[in-house]
Computed example of a mutant assay.
Amino acid sequence: MFFASDNGGPTHPNVMEALRVANEGYAMAYGADPIMEQVRDDIRRIFEAPAAAVYLIINGTAANSVLLATMAQPWQTIFCSDCAHIHEDECNAPEFYTQAKLTLVQTENGKMSADALHAKITAEENRGVHGPQRGPLSLTQATEKGTLYDVDEINALTAVARGFGLKTHMDGARFANALVALDCAPAEMTWQAGIDTLSFGATKNGAMGVEACVIFDPDLAWEFELRRKRGGHLLSKHRYLSAQMQAYLADGLWLDMARAANARCAQLADGLSGHNAVHVLFDPQANIIFFQMPRAEHQRMLSGGAVYYVMDGDASEGDPDEMLTGRLVTDWSVTKDRVGGFLNLLRG
């Protein structure tokens, strides 16, 4: 009953097979392999963006950091939510690569509002040469709380950024989960809504380790290439990234896996909502649930074989009645029976 993170899920067999096939013989290095040509065409077609620049990188932290470094100057500040992954979980890598700072925008249920963003941007760049200058906006979709920005909300936020002459980056580590939940087209949730660059996640959704950096503004492409190389993230045996992404996209596998993960999350949420000792936080719109229940219940679940993160305290010691927050994340491989086993254990 593993619900700690979709990072812990298995690689899809189709991706493993694609790696086996790619391992035969020789191929040109550094992204010159023929598989990459197909990947580039596939992503441009999926996003209805024939001029988009497409690059692969091995993990999400690098994807976010190199993209933001391409968009931000060292004397600028990047606007992001107060619970953004680039703020809480990337060990200052975005600051390292950009040499810029992060300005945090207050959120509700993991999402910033257009008004809150406008206020934060307005408050910057009013100290002349002595203060940080305004830099890009970064949005996380799905958010770190498992909630989603709908298309109208994305448009509203990017409109605020554009009003100040700023570009927008989207951290799409769980982009597929958000897309199928909103039932919209990739273009609608990205460049048509004002997104300039996208970290298009695959690792959390069935790949072994690959993310696509999709740049809708072609003027940024060459600088990204230079920064990726300088930052040590241009993989020599690139075909193993290309093969993963090729299999991930083939026949809509990426969407099927996201739907499966979301469905199991919905099953979990339904079961949790019927338990008197459990309080579900936020609205689980994709594949992440945050919930609260007494420490004693956490102890019983964890000792019974459930694996998940307790976010705000030591589950093993303390007041048995204290409410602690847990996080459950489903991935493509989670079965109905595994969810049923977790809920049966919860019911005691």
Rank of each mutant, 00 (worst) to 15 (best):
3 F>H: 04
8 G>F: 08
10 P>E: 08
12 H>L: 03
13 P>G: 01
17 E>I: 01
19 L>C: 02
26 Y>Q: 11
29 A>C: 08
31 G>C: 01
39 V>S: 01
55 Y>N: 09
62 A>V: 05
71 M>E: 01
72 A>S: 12
73 Q>R: 15
78 I>A: 11
88 E>N: 11
89 D>A: 14
89 D>I: 12
95 E>Q: 12
97 Y>P: 13
100 A>M: 07
105 V>K: 09
107 T>H: 02
107 T>S: 10
109 N>I: 08
114 A>M: 07
128 G>T: 07
129 V>T: 14
130 H>L: 15
140 T>K: 13
141 Q>D: 03
145 K>L: 15
150 D>C: 02
160 V>H: 05
161 A>T: 00
171 D>Q: 11
175 F>D: 07
175 F>M: 09
176 A>W: 10
177 N>S: 09
179 L>C: 03
183 D>T: 03
184 C>F: 03
197 T>N: 01
197 T>H: 01
201 G>Q: 06
201 G>R: 03
205 N>D: 05
207 A>D: 14
211 E>R: 13
221 A>F: 14
231 G>N: 13
239 R>V: 11
243 A>C: 04
247 A>E: 04
256 D>Y: 03
256 D>F: 04
267 Q>V: 07
271 G>F: 13
280 V>K: 02
283 D>N: 10
288 I>H: 06
306 A>L: 01
307 V>K: 15
309 Y>C: 11
311 M>K: 10
317 E>R: 13
325 T>I: 08
329 V>D: 08
338 R>H: 15
339 V>E: 07
